[in-house]
Amino acid sequence: MSVLLTENTKIVVQGITGSEGSFHTQQMMEYNTKVVAGVTPGKGGQKFNETVPIFNTVKEAAAETGANASVIFVPPPFAADAIMEAAEAGLGLIICITEGIPAKDMVKVYDYIQDKNTHLVGPNCPGVISPGIGKMGIMPAFIHQQGHVGVISRSGTLTYEAVGQLSARNIGQSTCIGIGGDPVIGTRFIDALKLFNEDEDTHAVVMIGEIGGSAEEEAAEWIKANFKKPVVGFIAGQTAPPGRRMGHAGAIISGGQGTAADKMAAMEAAGIHVCKSPADIGKMIEEVL
């Protein structure tokens, strides 16, 4: 088993004809992911790679193909609209890869989807992969291995680093969720942890945070009260200076809040196995399993 992306997930790709969208759709299909439809307004009726039907709207795509999940590669000015379109169409899982969506747009999206029955992952994230089942996103599939460790991360390549360390030790993953590096995101650490808590096939979780905000502290508190499985944690940005935005829009220490030290202390207090070095993530999981 796995979370979010399972055997029953049928995917529509929004922005399938763009350069990013078409390249990654190809990669997703090579990994045997069930891509059943694409959406590019104005290109309805065409086919992607002569196999995947393209529609003008998500609603049509879902009605015609039974798609129940979307992955979005739409450029930033149109991405918020694309998320809301997918939510309105009733898709239960929406993964937005797009980087650089204005925060104001995401505040509106977040509000809009509150009463919709959907999981939004991202934006500005590598996506979700359930090894052996499929991938919705831009992560390199070949570094993954099917198994029982869940991975939740605010970062992209740092997630690959952690997964690489796991697979090198023959420790497979149930699902890896890149929740994204923006200030406003759909799925937060706690939402992902709840899913892994209920998933019998997930035996332990790797949680990779960053400086900025207080999501890691809140997750730590929740873990202490509710989480039944061992958690290994790492926080990137231990050496970051305050007031500087460290690449991700969300990665900034402001007003003394959001430091790595605070987050690591909160995680340790919650019984999480915190790695000081990013090189120790794989080793630490091996120890706790």
């Binding site: 970062s155 992209g156 390549t157 590096g181 940005g237 460290m246 690449g247 990665a251 790595a260």
Partner: peptide, 10 residues
Amino acid sequence: GAGLAMATMD
């Protein structure tokens, strides 16, 4: 990648 960049600094 920003996360890996921060981790490398660390």
